[in-house]
Amino acid sequence: MIAFAITAAVAMGMYLIFTAGSGNIGYWSLSELIAAVGLGVVTGAVTKEFLCHRHEYRMANPLRFLLIPVYVIGPFFLEMMKANLDVAYRVLTMKIRPGIIRVKSGMKTDLGAFMLANSITLTPGTITVDIDEATNDLFIHNINLPEGDEEKEFFTGEELFALANLPAWIRRIAE
């Protein structure tokens, strides 16, 4: 029942976002509001087992999912800016020293590992190549490994980010 309600609410919200600006009840027309309710109920009934297949409702807490835009606009965008200046420098000078390293992520949930992997892909000098699904360890291709770092067996997530502590943010959101 909770799974159905959450899925229906998410689907309805998505539909309302897509059709904003269609009329003058708020920003919606009456027919779009009726269609949103109808489609939300149908989508919730059909796909409730996909969105909530673990039956964990931790992410339904508004404090958690409203933190995601704050995270994306604030620390994540800063790191992304630095990443792109770094890539621009590497493209123009071709000073590269690539290698694949292993990072202990320390994430306990799938969503945490997923968000950390995507954040790593879009931030300085690193893309995620593979995830060890048993331990949530990440294998990361680093474009410019500092001298001597190829001897290290493991890295921690915090060592990859210079400007902001992204793993702590992700832990706050997802765990």
Partner: peptide, 8 residues
């Protein structure tokens, strides 16, 4: 060109 490959 790679200095280390932990995945391999």
């Amino acid at each position: 060109p790679a200095v280390v490959d932990r995945l391999a």
